[in-house]
Amino acid sequence: MSYVHLYTGNGKGKTTAAIGLALRAVGAGRRVYIAQFVKGQRYGEIAYIDRRIPTITTHRYGSECFIERKPTPDDISRAAEGLEEVRRILHNGRYGLVILDEATIAIYFGLFTSAELIDAINDRHPDTEVVITGRYATPDLIAAADLVTDMQEVKHYYTLGVEARPGIEC
């Protein structure tokens, strides 16, 4: 039996928690697929995984982070193609864990719908565990998940103007 995890909220650590679960899954002999929506840049943990952990496959379905601008047709196309690829990956059973990083942000920006994502998840192989990350989880996505963690920001030094630091935030 497999379950759907949802890590949401305004707090830091959603992707980090998902990567931690990926390492745990690899340690138990599972293959992992990490699909990153919206994120086009290569973060430190993904760079390390790509170089050192062959049982984790990563793919980014975005050109760059567009949080402060309207998504382009290319952004929408990449996300739609990514969701179709993820649908096949979820269904084929090759991976014991599939992480859909920032999928809720893709939904928030209208790159695909929560119904489309839920349909893909519901059509997954019975042994494929799923983790979805990102802010702004929709009520129907929360209802579809088996485990929901809401990470709340209490205090963060970026409010003091501290930029993202390599190896810590990126």
Rank of each mutant, 00 (worst) to 15 (best):
V4T: 14
H5N: 10
N10M: 11
G13H: 04
T16G: 08
T16F: 10
A17E: 06
A18Q: 06
L21M: 15
V26R: 06
V26W: 01
A28V: 01
V32Y: 13
Q36E: 08
Q36T: 07
Q36K: 06
F37I: 08
Q41G: 15
G44Q: 02
E45D: 10
I46D: 06
I53D: 00
I53E: 02
P54T: 13
T57W: 04
T57I: 03
H59F: 10
H59Q: 15
G62Q: 10
E64M: 11
K70D: 14
P73C: 02
D75Q: 07
I76L: 09
A79F: 09
E81T: 10
G82I: 05
G82D: 05
E85Q: 13
V86Y: 03
R87N: 11
I89D: 03
I89W: 01
G93K: 03
G93F: 07
G96C: 12
L100N: 05
D101R: 07
A103G: 07
A103W: 11
I105C: 09
Y108T: 15
Y108K: 15
F109D: 05
F109N: 06
F112D: 13
F112L: 10
S114L: 12
D119S: 14
A120L: 03
I121L: 03
I121W: 04
N122Q: 12
N122L: 03
D127L: 13
T128M: 05
E129D: 14
R135A: 08
A137I: 04
T138R: 09
T138E: 10
P139E: 13
D140L: 00
D146S: 06
T149W: 00
M151R: 10
Q152L: 03
Q152D: 04
Q152W: 00
Y157R: 08
G161T: 05
G161W: 02
V162S: 11
E163T: 12
A164L: 01
G167P: 00
I168H: 06
I168Y: 07
E169H: 06
E169V: 05
E169G: 05
